[in-house]
Computed example of a mutant assay.
Amino acid sequence: MLVCHCNIITQKEIEDTIIGLLDEDCWQLIVPAKVYHALQKRGRCCGCFPNVVETIIKVTEEYHLRHDPNDSDVISFMDRVRSLRQQYGSIQHERRNKGHRAA
């Protein structure tokens, strides 16, 4: 699935990059800019960043569960990240008004 239309980046490329970053240091903070830098791309319109954040959360959780399935701290931490994302991330989705139209 195509995630970034500006740079033609697929979901698989983003997931592979996140896993590569986690292999380097499994507790580093991964943000969309770091993923794009690793892909040697840059955000243009940045409309895909909310989806990239969701992918980062999902892949990081799966990565840690694969490597230590008994670690309940990872689950509670990822749940807190999700709740903050829902609390603050949905106020202004992509910084666009609901009535925003391209044409």
Rank of each mutant, 00 (worst) to 15 (best):
I57G: 04
C48P: 02
F49Q: 02
V31W: 03
C4I: 05
P32W: 00
H67W: 08
K34D: 01
H93Y: 15
V81R: 03
L84I: 08
A33H: 07
L39N: 00
I9L: 08
E62G: 07
F77C: 11
I8C: 15
C4Y: 02
D25H: 06
T10P: 03
E13T: 06
G20K: 08
V53P: 03
F49A: 01
H64C: 04
Y63R: 02
N51G: 06
V3S: 01
Q92D: 13
M1Y: 11
I57Q: 04
I57K: 05
V59R: 02
W27C: 07
I75E: 05
K12E: 15
P50H: 03
Y63M: 04
T17R: 01
Q86G: 12
K34Q: 06
R85S: 13
F49N: 00
V35L: 00
D79K: 15
M1Q: 13
K98V: 13
H37K: 12
P32L: 01
R95P: 03
S72L: 12
I9T: 01
G20R: 07
T55V: 09
L22Y: 03
V74M: 05
V74S: 04
T17M: 00
F49H: 01
I75K: 10
V3Q: 02
T10G: 04
K41F: 01
R44N: 05
D23F: 08
K12Y: 12
Y63P: 02
T10V: 07
A102R: 15
V81T: 04
K12C: 12
C45T: 05
L2C: 11
Q86S: 11
A33W: 05
K12R: 14
V74I: 08
R44F: 09
K12Q: 15
E94S: 14
D16R: 05
R95F: 09
R82A: 10
V59K: 01
G99F: 11
K58L: 11
E62T: 11
E24A: 10
V59H: 03
E94Q: 14
R96V: 12
W27M: 09
M1T: 14
R96W: 09
C48Q: 01
K12H: 13
G99Y: 13
R66G: 05
M1C: 13
N51M: 00
C46E: 07
I75T: 08
S72V: 14
Q11C: 08
N7D: 09
V53E: 05
I9V: 09
H67D: 04
E24Q: 13
A102Y: 10
I30H: 02
Q11P: 00
V74P: 02
V52M: 03
K98L: 14
N97S: 14
D71Q: 05
L84H: 13
N51P: 00
A38H: 04
E24S: 11
K98M: 13
R80L: 14
G99D: 14
K58A: 09
F49W: 04
D68L: 08
S76A: 13
G89K: 01
I75R: 09
A33C: 00
L29V: 10
R85N: 13
T10F: 06
V53M: 07
D68W: 07
I19W: 02
V31I: 09
D68N: 11
K12W: 10
L2D: 08
I19E: 05
A38V: 06
H93G: 09
Y36E: 00
S72W: 13
S83E: 14
E94T: 12
N70C: 11
L2Q: 10
F77K: 12
